[in-house]
Each structure stands twice: as C-alpha cells, then as structure tokens.
Amino acid sequence: MDSVFGKYRNLNTPIHKMDARLKIFALIILMVACFLPYARSSIINSEGIPEYFGYYANTFLVLGILALIIFIIMIISKTSFKSFLKSLNAIWLMIIFLLIFMVFIPRTTSTETLHPIVTFSNGYAIYWDGVLQCLHVVLRIILMLALTLILTSTTAPMDITYALDWYMKPLSLLKIPTQIFTMIISLALRFIPTLLEKSQRIMKAQKSRGVDFNKGFISAKVKSITTLIVPLLVSCFSISDDLSVAMYVRGYEPYGKRTNYKVLTFKLSDLLAFIILLVILGFFIFLCVMAQHYHINFWEFFGIKGTW
C-alpha cells in the first residue's frame, strides 16, 4: 500500500538540511503565492473589448514562474518525479469532476461575458472561461501537491512534529497543553506502518476464508470491509492499552515539561533561506498588487504593450 504523500528519503541535500520550522514556513508562503490573484479585476478594457485571455494570461504566467521555482526546489532536494506523478494519481478523479463542472458552468458575474468554444443545439455550451478557470484550479492543486510532497520527502516525520510543536508554543500561554498534541501526532505517525502491516495480514487471513475484497456490489464490499475493520479496531485498542501502560511504566507525565533528544537549530544558512523566502513572498505580493490595483500585467514591466 503506497500512501499519497511521499515517504521520507534520507538524502543529504540543502533542502534536507534546512530547519523543519523554516520548511513549514516556506510551504505556507509558497502556498499563499499559489492562491494570490494575479489578474486584473476588470474584464472589459477601455475600448469595451473583453480581455478574457489577458485576464488568464497574467495568472498563468505568474503561476508558471512559481512552478519554475518549485521545480528548481524539487531538483535541489532530489525529490523523485515518479512519486510526484504517483501522488497525482490520487487526484485525477477530482480533476475530472472539476473539468465536467467548470467547463460547462463557469463562474461569472453575468452571462454576457462568457466565450463559448462550442455551442450545442440544446443550449449548452463549452466556454473558454470554464476551461481556463478549470486549468487555473488544477494547476494550483498540482503545485500544492508538489509542495507538500517536497516537505514530506525531505523532512523526517519526527522533525515535522517538533516543528509543529514549536509553532503551537504560543498556545501554551493560554494553558493549552500543546505537548500532548505533539505526542498524539508523533504516536499516530509511528503507528501508521504498523497498522498497515496489520491490516494486510488481516486481509490475507480473511481472503483465505473466502473473502474477495475487490469483487461484489456495494453491500458485499461493506460486508468484506467489516471483516477488516472490526479485527483492526480490536487490535488497535489492545495496542493502545499496552502502549499507555508501557508509557506509564516508563514515567510518562502528560503535563510535565518535555525535552527532546534532537533539538532543532536555526543555522546561518537557514537565515539566508528565510530572507530568500521573504523576497519571494514580496515579489508575488508585488505582482498581485500591480495586477489588482494598478492593472499592470507582468509583461508590461518589460515594456511589452498590449493585452493578449
């Protein structure tokens, strides 16, 4: 069973060495960059001609720059493209769903500005606006997937947990026991492979009792899943009982102050990366403001006039 997100690969690249807290920060910044609007808000230009291509041209151009940045990070971090393509496998159903809906029913303020590619005799049509909108959403999702994949394949799960713990620290001022959340996350991460192995064993055991997990209608499938879920839950409870006793015996105190064997350290290179990230964020916010407020497209900075 492959999980959607990439497994951690223990390599020695600058991205791997980066502080986990910074990587989470970078993930958030680049995701924000994915979702900023990079288009003029007006769709009709001064001569009264609709600019629907211009609208999307700027967006796609900027997202293209972002994709290039992410691509470079992928190369530096030696993230496998195979696992990236594999993770895309998980969302193709969603993409088809989006395609069907957005191509036929584009989001718009008034129907007059729609630009049909084909109009069917019964009044339905496929619109340029829908196709471009759909591409826009899909591109954003793919970029986000790539970002999370980079994070999970370059950062050990425990490091992610420590980083999340660090981000949650302010909550402890409100007397929220953040260390318990961290413990829960790290235990959950620790037991994913164990439970996968257990479920595979149970599936095999039920198969030899004649269960076919792939065949049958929905009712048969529900029945066969029950034969997996119930034993899995039973063994989950017995594991958690054993685990809690084992932790108790070794002196675990939920509200006590905890120290870590591995301490996250912020290095000089991390500071440099932090500054680069801020510059990137600034650049994208600048592009966003320019397009939204001053109606200047990206290429117009280079003296190229006109819309698409």
């Binding site: 064993r201 149970i202 095999k204 055991a205 029950t226 119930v230 034993p231 039973v234 063994s235």
Partner: peptide, 13 residues
C-alpha cells in the same frame, strides 16, 4: 487449502 495465520484470533470479527 485452508490457511491459519499466526495469532489467528486477530481475524475474528
């Protein structure tokens, strides 16, 4: 051919 796994009690449901 019937196969009984190790710790087969885990297949009870």
């Amino acid at each position: 051919v019937g196969l009984v796994f190790q710790f087969p009690e885990y297949q009870l449901f």
